[in-house]
Design a protein around this nucleic acid. Structure first.
Length: 217
DNA sequence: TGCCAGGCCGGGT
DNA sequence: ACCCGGCATGGC
């Protein structure tokens, strides 16, 4: 078994199934992906709740809602002004290019990804989170935790960019959206245990050794 | 109190 | 091409 499969297995055995993404519909997943940019999910939950209460958590309603209303609703998620713009860019981009949200389901993975990345406010992680968790196409989502863990264990260089890190996983694993789904969720769980500033082999952090050593401390 | 959170953009050098 | 500040709330 490959190293990356072994790591996955140990994380899965330790943490169990994560049932990601926390969202009831593909549209909700997309909105959550934007709202959680550099933000704790607990804050996003309040914003999502507000949108639900006001019946704004669907494509048509959110598209029509005024920026002021949206900003007020998503306030708990932080960066509410810029995130309002990003949501609007997303919604208006879809309306202009495809007409409906559901039309996105007919796009190929690469076309979908390319379209999302063309929108201001949607970068690689947000796009890939949508592609994987809303549209269930096989891309490996990389985030700050992913890089932090790999760098800590000297599996990648500090300088590795998003796409290099992503290839690292995608080359090592079968192209399975369910696997990518679970793996990324487990990495987020694991990453919370790594302090941000510590050097490799920080005493507080788990996963002290990967090659030949115990994965979980 | 300060630091951190499931990024991304835009302006300066 | 890099580097860096701005964006903002809530939890520990």
């Amino acid at each position: 078994m490959s190293l990356f499969k072994e790591i996955f297995q140990k994380l899965f055995d330790h943490f169990g199934k994560q049932n990601w993404w926390p969202g009831e519909t593909p549209f909700e997943v997309c909105v959550g992906a934007i709202l959680t940019q550099n933000t704790a999910w607990s804050n996003v939950e309040h914003a999502i709740e507000n949108l639900k209460k006001q019946n704004l958590l669907n494509f048509e309603s959110l598209l029509k809602a005024s920026p002021e209303i949206v900003a007020q609703a998503i306030r708990p998620a932080g960066y509410f002004n810029i995130k309002t713009k990003r949501l609007k860019n997303f919604l208006e981009g879809i309306a202009k290019e495809f007409g409906t949200f559901d039309a996105l389901f007919h796009l190929s993975k690469d076309h979908l990804r390319e379209f999302l990345l063309s929108l201001k406010g949607i970068g690689p992680e947000t796009a890939d989170s949508m592609v994987l968790y809303a549209f269930e196409k096989p891309v490996f989502v990389v985030d700050a935790y992913t890089k932090r863990i790999l760098v800590r264990h000297r599996l990648i260089e500090e300088e590795a960019d998003y796409f290099q890190t992503q290839e690292f996983f995608e080359n090592a694993l079968e192209n399975d959206p369910k696997l990518f789904n679970e793996y990324h969720a487990l990495i987020v769980m694991t990453g919370k245990n790594y302090c941000k500033k510590s050097k490799p082999n920080c005493a507080h952090c788990p996963l002290k050794e990967v090659n030949g050593g115990p994965i979980l401390g």
